[in-house]
Design a protein around this nucleic acid. Sequence first.
DNA 1: TAGCTTCGTTCGTGGCACAAACGTTAGTCA
DNA 2: TGACTAACGTTTGTGCCACGAACGAAGCTA
Lengths: 165, 165
Amino acid sequence: MPSRAEAADMPADGAIEAPERLRRRASRLLSQMSVRSDRLITDGLARVDARKWHYAVLASLQEYGPGSQATLSRNTGIYRSDMVGVLNELAERGDVERTPDPGDRRRNVITITEQGRRHLRRLDDVLDDLHEELLAPLLPEERDQFVGMLRRLLDHHTQRTPPAP
Amino acid sequence: MPSRAEAADMPADGAIEAPERLRRRASRLLSQMSVRSDRLITDGLARVDARKWHYAVLASLQEYGPGSQATLSRNTGIYRSDMVGVLNELAERGDVERTPDPGDRRRNVITITEQGRRHLRRLDDVLDDLHEELLAPLLPEERDQFVGMLRRLLDHHTQRTPPAP
DNA sequence: TAGCTTCGTTCGTGGCACAAACGTTAGTCA
DNA sequence: TGACTAACGTTTGTGCCACGAACGAAGCTA
C-alpha cells in the first residue's frame, strides 16, 4: 500500500486553484468535502480497527435498544444486504449478539453487549477528535450552524414523496 | 431501469429517524447529503444530456483559457486518466477542440468552442435551478454562509503537506 | 386455503476516485 | 552529445460504495 504522499505521479490533489464557478457550487463543495471527510474518518477509525458502519449500528442499538436487522437498517441508512456483513463483523468481535426472535421466526434480534457499549464510547472519543480535525477551521459557534444547516438540508431531502393515491 | 419510487423492496430511503448520535456527526451528515446532492445534480444534468465533469471542464476553460489536459486535470480535480474520456465526450459534441500543442509535442491544447460556451451558459442555468432545489431549506443569507464554510473547510483540507526536505 | 408482505441472505451491478505502467517528448546537466 | 529525469496522454485495472434482484422462509389477511 503506497503512502499517499509519495505517489510520484499524481494529479490534482493539491488543487492549484479551481475556477470560481466551481468554488461557488454547493454541490461540488459538498462532494469534494465529503470525499476528504470520509477519508479522514475511515483512516482514523481504521487505526482503532473499526469502520464507520460499526459506529452507526452500535449507536442505533444504544439509543433504541435491541432490534431486528431490518429496523437497524432503517435507522442507520445501511442497506439490508450490507447490514449482514457489518453485523457479522460486530458479532465476531463480541460487540453485538445475534439471536433468533422467538416471537417472529423471520427475524433476528440484535443486542449490544457490554463490550459493544465500551467500544461505542471509545469510538465516540475517537470521532470527537476526528471531528475536531475535520471542523478545525470553524469556530465552535459556526460548527453548530454548519451541522444545523446540514441537518435541515438532509431532512428536507429525505422526505418521502408519498405515492399518489 | 426501475423507477426509484416503485422499487418494492427498498430499505432505508425514507430514514425513519436516525439516532441523535449520528445526526450530530458532521462527517455523516456530509456524506449522506453528498449522496443526495450528487443524485440531484447527476439526474438533473442527465436530463439535458450532460454530466458534471463536463461543466467542470468547460468552466475551467472559460475561466483560464485553453490549456493542456494535465492543467485541466489540476484545475478541476479530475484525474488525468478520467479526463481522457470526458474530453472525448466533449470533443464529440463539439464543445471543445483538441489539437496537438506545436510548442510541446507531448501536450494537447484544449480549447472551448463557441458552442461549448453556449452549453456552459445553459448548464449554468440548469445548475442554478438545481441548486435552488438543493438549498431550498436555507435562507439566501444562510446559503452564503453555508457555501463559505464549506469553502473554508475544503481549503483547509486541501493544503498540501510539503514533503520533508 | 391462497395471496400478499417482511425478513435475512447471497450475488451482482454501476459509478466513482484512484493508481500502475507505457510510449513519447522535453528539460537538465555531466 | 548522451544519459537521466520528469511531464504528458492514454490504457487498463482496482477497491469501495450505494444499491438492486431474487430467493427461501415465515408471518399476515381474507
